[in-house]
Amino acid sequence: MPTNAYTRLPGRRLNSLLGTTSLWLGSDHILKVTMAGYSEEYRRFYLADVRGFVIQRTSAMMSWIGVTGVLAVGLGLGGIALWSGGGTDAQVGGGIFIGLAVVSLILFVVNLIKGPSCDFYIKTAIQTDRIKSISRLKSAEALITALTPVVLAAQRGSAAAPVVEDAPVVEGPVA
């Protein structure tokens, strides 16, 4: 039996309380591992069958920044107002509000650092599968960099269109 050594690929995402998705590279395939409860589910994409990747930019980052930013400012101002309002109870309430504002601020900054969000899809001849472990352009870029050479090596010899060095970029409303 061949060895089942896998190398971890960039990206990991918490789908639910007990569920994560991650990608691993095997000798001849990419393994998508979805952990659900106390079991792991596997889906394999053979390198020779991968036809392309599609990355779609999403607005999730901007939504999170908006929500956490508004919460940080609102809770912070409310907390300061309560704190400076007087009595001990008001100060305790103000402290809780300020604590929540700090948590929101941390989430705001983390979102900023992680960068723009995206959805990542792997296309084969019969399916297009969304890879939930890749939700940021940075991790998508890292995954493309890691996978492109191995996919090309696995498909060497396939009938192919000529390689275009400087790919044409269609002009459009790029944010």
Binding site: S158, A167, G172
Partner: peptide, 23 residues
């Protein structure tokens, strides 16, 4: 073959990027 870079979908304008392999 290769990487298109970020571009806009000709139909809906969504920002997309495609990487094409020989398969």
């Amino acid at each position: 073959l290769g990487d298109s870079g970020m571009m806009a979908c000709p139909n809906c304008g969504t920002d997309v990027r495609v990487v094409v392999f020989p398969a």
